[in-house]
Amino acid sequence: MRTAFVQQLVEEASHNEKVFLLVADLGFNVVEPFAQKFPNRFLNVGIAEQNMAGIAAGLAKEGFIPFMYSIGNFPTLRCMEQIRYDICYHKLNVNIVAVGGGYAYGPLGASHHTTEEIGMLRTIPNICVCAPSDPVESRKITGMAVEDASPFYIRLGKNGEPVIHTADVRLQKGTPLLLKDGKQIAVLAMGSVAMDSLDFVKRNNLSAAVYSLPIIKPMEKESLLALFKQYEKIITIEEHQASAGFGSAILECMNDLQEGKRLEKAPMVKRIAIPDTFTYIAGSSTFLKEKNHVTLKKEYFDTIT
C-alpha cells in the first residue's frame, strides 16, 4: 500500500505543484521517487513530529498541500494536539499518512502497534479518517486527499498487500465498497483486515457478503442505511481497540438512524476488535491478530438470533 501511495503522490505532484511531502526521518527506500523528482517540495524535518505537523500547517496555510508521512503512532499520537488545533481547527489541507496501521509492525512491539489512533482522530472535527484495504483504495484516497480541502488521515498497512479490487472503484466518503456479494450476514472491514475477511469467507464457503469501508469518517448514513436494511447481521472487523473505533462508528450511525426513525429494525452487530489490551510479547501481525481475537470465526456465521 505504501508503494501505491507514493506512486500516486508522484502522479499528483506531477500535475499539481502545490503537493508537498514531509517526512520525520522515516520512509527510507519508500519516498525516494518523490524526493528525487520534486526536491523543492520534499523535506525531511528530522525526528520531530510535532514540528512536522506545525510545518505542515504553515505550508497549508500558504496554499500548499502537504502530506506528512511517518510510521505507526508517530505522525498522530505524538502530535495529536497539533493535529487537533493547528490543522483541524484551522481546516487546513494537511494530509497525515501513517504506515504500519494495526499490528503491521507486529514484532517491533507496542510502541509500533498503531491500535488507538482512529478512535482519537475520529473525535476531532473537520478531519476525514481513512484506512484503505488495498493498493487500489490507497491510490484513490491519496488522490482524494489532494483534491479535498479538508485534512485527511490515511492509515496504510505496510507493504505487499494484495490487490483486492480488480476493477476500478468509485470511492465516496463513508460509502462501503462491495468485495463479495452475499446474504443475511455482511462483514464490514476497515483496512487490511478486509483481505483476511474475504479470504475467510471464501475459504469456508460462507454465504456472507464482505465490504470494505475505507473512509470511516465522515460516515455516509444513506448507503449504510441500505446495508442495515439488507442484512440481518453485521460483523465489523478492525485492527484497532474496540473503544471508539470502526465498529463503534457503525453502531453510532445505526443508532442515529434508529433514533431518527429511518431504521425500524437494526441488525445484530458483532464487533471484532482488540479487547482493551496491550501486547507484551513479540509476534507477527498474523500471530497478534489471532492472539487478540481480531479474526473471524465460523461460529459468528452459524446462527442468527
Binding site: 523535506l43 510535532q50 514540528n51 505537523a53 506545525g54 510545518i55 505542515a56 500547517a57 504553515g58 505550508l59 497549508a60 496555510k61 500558504e62 496554499g63 500548499f64 502537504p66 494536539e81 497539533q82 488545533y85 493547528d86
Partner: peptide
Amino acid sequence: HALSIACGIAVA
C-alpha cells in the same frame, strides 16, 4: 505551537 507553523510559512 506557533514557531513550527512560522517555519512552515517561511518554507512556503
